[in-house]
Design a protein around this nucleic acid. Structure first.
Lengths: 218, 218
DNA sequence: CAACACACGTGAGCC
DNA sequence: TGGCTCACGTGTGTT
């Protein structure tokens, strides 16, 4: 994945000939972090994550969004009721003062793929095919922050068990999204370990996998 | 908006001490363009665009997606709701021909304002300011399904405590989104009680409020 | 060592 | 006047 590098920080006036360095630098960092967080959030919303890279995240999100729109239309016409719920049925039309009309609906997300090999995508299309191998990724980010992505089938009690496991590991989950609809998705964007003992990412992964597996076996 | 600049390119042999610059440069440019295109596509799909900057685009997309998912859930339960036959044992797993693969949801997309004051008393989870009144709503839907919305400040351990509380109440959380970024937001769209004992919504609410308040008091 | 993906710091243009 | 966003080129890690 992404390369990491810890830019050493001269907190105070570092060798800058010009006077505009340190102030804007941090602003840019914050901006980047915000954008990344949003991207992670978006990924956590989209079920069919084919790959983890940013472009794919966006692409999957777009496709998913279109799917949802289509599905809403289906359900809507299936209900055929005049009593439209009324709250907010928003056809994908621009209505705000946003400029730039794309005009052509259904922008294709496909891009030039050199070889025309399209992966059949055996990932979960819809029905909760239970055969889900409980995938877990753990990364440490910038030394302190811990990043976890967990993904498996939902089972009763898994929610509690997972939280308990994280707590037992001494992890303080600070930024996270946990969502279970058909599957179970846990995304910890930031967690710090309270305990002084350093925990290896592999250990966390192992524990979580075991937690998921435990319920899987039921 | 973003500044544009057309970096003039010394087309061929630029003063490169090393031999590997120009090739990767173009690759990076293509990557960036692809990402931007995807972003534009995403924006073109989302109707309500508040602002044009990248972060807002992502944020709006997330919120929109959330809305769509919510709406699908509504329509879905509205279809099979009236004919609520014997959903006694455990039919919670989706099996109907309806695909509906969502398994993820979205958190609140608000952001932190650094210091001081913008509107001092909004409702959204913005600043890490602690003074959050811990709001909880509980509703029962069609007898069985339970719907919970909880919202308070994030505190260490709150996640585990809340899960434990729900478990102690005998609730099997089937569709939910828990997200803690700045604040703590729990959204249970569907939960069923395993225990035969009927639990009053007010009881659930009280327990959750107590759980949140407990941590708040720390 | 290719190619790829990411984060970083920096200069520039708009509020 | 400064803050904010953006695109760029580059270094570095991952496949």
């Amino acid at each position: 994945m992404g390369g990491h590098q810890v830019a050493d920080k001269g907190p105070s006036g570092r060798g800058n000939r010009k006077g505009l360095p340190a102030k804007n630098l941090m602003a840019e960092r914050r901006r980047r972090k915000k954008l990344n967080d949003r991207l992670y959030m978006l990924r956590s919303v989209v079920p069919k994550i084919t790959k983890m890279d940013r472009a794919s995240i966006l692409g999957d999100a777009i496709e998913y969004l279109k799917e949802l729109l289509q599905r809403i239309n289906e359900l809507h016409s299936e209900l055929e009721g005049p009593a439209d719920g009324g709250s907010m049925g928003i056809p994908p039309q621009q209505q705000s003062g946003a400029l730039l009309s794309p005009q052509s609906f259904a922008p294709c997300v496909k891009e030039e793929c050199p070889a025309s090999s399209i992966s059949p995508l055996p990932l979960l299309p819809g029905p909760p095919t239970d055969l889900q191998p409980a995938k877990v990724e753990v990364r440490t980010r910038d030394g302190k922050g811990i990043n976890i992505h967990m993904f498996c089938a939902r089972t009763p009690g898994l929610l509690l068990s997972t939280m308990r496991a994280l707590d037992d590991l001494g992890l303080d989950v600070q930024q996270a999204v946990i969502s279970c609809f058909n599957g179970f998705v846990l995304d910890v964007f930031r967690a710090e370990q309270c305990s002084d003992a350093e925990i290896a990412p592999e250990e966390i992964k192992a524990v979580l996998l075991q937690t998921a597996g435990c319920h899987e076996a039921l």
